[in-house]
């Protein structure tokens, strides 16, 4: 048999093997109750920031401690702890994808991905402010 052919076969076999192996790296998005079932295991939760609940970040007490509340896609609300500084414009986020695990009743996030409305593309037309009007014309 051609050596190239053998090499290709080995690679294809390797590829299939790796794909099966990589299955363990994949997971569905969870909600909080599923995350509770997988207590201690790292999961991803998609949710919305609960804007009526308090966000807490007091750098004087601890610059690496930020908490907030999230409603997951089934509507369940949990407190989330993120051991880092509060991300800029966090309160503007519409959806959040959190990586982390449940610890008791709380979700400890290690990574936050925020979906912000595009800040500079507001669908409102800015009217020139008065001052500028007088200086420019």
């Amino acid at each position: 048999m051609k050596p190239t052919f053998i090499a290709a076969l080995v690679l294809i076999a390797g590829a299939i093997g790796l794909f099966i192996w990589s299955g363990q790296d994949m997971d569905t998005y969870s909600n909080f109750s599923q995350a509770t079932d997988k207590m201690g295991e790292t999961v991803k939760v998609v949710g919305q920031l609960a804007k009526d609940k308090e966000m807490h970040y007091d750098p004087h007490q601890d610059p690496n401690y930020f908490t907030f509340y999230v409603n997951d896609q089934s509507g369940e609300q949990r407190k989330v702890i993120y051991y880092a500084a509060k991300p800029q414009d966090f309160e503007l986020s519409e959806g959040i994808v959190m990586t982390g695990k449940m610890k008791g009743d709380e979700f400890v996030a290690t990574d936050l991905l925020m979906k912000c409305p595009s800040k500079y593309k507001d669908e409102e037309i800015f009217v020139r402010d008065e001052q500028k009007e007088t200086t420019t014309g």
Binding site: L18, S22, D25, M26, D27, T28, Y29, T42, V43, K44, T99
Partner: peptide, 16 residues
């Protein structure tokens, strides 16, 4: 269908 996602992308890609 429940969408799937990579739990830890950096570790995942680095591994291969």
């Amino acid at each position: 269908f429940e969408g799937r996602t990579i739990k830890d992308p950096v570790a995942h890609y680095n591994k291969y």
